[in-house]
Design a binder for these strands. Sequence first.
DNA 1: TCTTCGCCTAAGCGCTTGCTTAGCAGGTAA
DNA 2: TTACCTGCTAAGCAAGCGCTTAGGCGAAGA
Lengths: 188, 188
Amino acid sequence: MAAAVESFAAKGFHGTTTRDIASGAGMSPAALYVHHRSKEDLLYEISRAGHERTLALVREAVGTSRDPREQLLAVVHAFVVHHAEDHTGARIVNYELAALSPEHLEEIAAIRRQIEQEMRDVVERGVAAGVFATPDAHMTALALLSLGIDVARWYRDEGDWSPEQIADHYSDLALRIVGAVPGGNTGR
Amino acid sequence: MAAAVESFAAKGFHGTTTRDIASGAGMSPAALYVHHRSKEDLLYEISRAGHERTLALVREAVGTSRDPREQLLAVVHAFVVHHAEDHTGARIVNYELAALSPEHLEEIAAIRRQIEQEMRDVVERGVAAGVFATPDAHMTALALLSLGIDVARWYRDEGDWSPEQIADHYSDLALRIVGAVPGGNTGR
DNA sequence: TCTTCGCCTAAGCGCTTGCTTAGCAGGTAA
DNA sequence: TTACCTGCTAAGCAAGCGCTTAGGCGAAGA
């Protein structure tokens, strides 16, 4: 599976051959089929595990506080760090959905909707509490997720910024994006 | 070329066969090779044209004003509208770079650097003029581009928002992201 | 000792891939 | 009439594809 993640992320699902994966894992092509039903099934397993991990990470971040401002900071920070550190896995999660079978795609899409819902809830709770100000919580939540997801596209290990640095800056941007009122109880 | 754009965007470069493109264009597979040297060359032509169009559109938007605030609004608005309306082309431009040959990729990367430079310049001019406030102009410019590019990933024609609506909201977010000082001379 | 099981390989099957070849129809020009 | 050009098709080639088959080998259990 690790070899498949590497190949799928670098060359895409269709650009990867079963022989690529096998040689990356130090095996013969036939050995793959002892553990996985098909190449598509391998993608599905990777994608599902990745999505579940992301959802768990988002929920965990939201759970660290009851203050919307703190929740926002925690969730954006964790989300961005994850998309930078695990950009390999995150690329498959976000950019290889079209290669999934219709049934598998629907299952994955359901997890994605839950992730989006978590972010939307955070923004809406902040607006309701009067600590955030935005004309459209739905689109604003989408923008916050966008920012994090796109990190997986452009992040390079050899780049100038560490995942932590990016996450710190993006957490700051997140407060601005939701129109957080100045003077929240803590600045981290 | 239009048929190739359609296929590449829907299934990716490697997921598209020359027979897909040919039948999409109502031709035999052999007819493609009268007009294009190879499948990769077709991708390159599409990618280059798309990148040049994006760069032109960014420069045109920047040229509409000498006020950084107006420039930011114009460039983000145009960038977002483009990535929504032409999400098909934009997907190829942003997500099929890995399928290009090394020489073609380098040529395309040069155009991308120019696009990034334009956005960075707008932010830096605003900071220098004291109308924007951000701790890292480089990363902030990247975030602005990220937001626009990711629209091409999630935008659907059947969605609830029009390209204009998204662009309007995102222009607003852009002002917040760069920390534009309140009370600019015009609100659009 | 014999059998079974998990995990692997060598070989290869049937199909699809990108691309080429040979040739054809219609327009243009000498 | 003859020659050539552009834009196309039918047919097909060599290579690569996902996946299967048949069988080997060492550990575990009877």
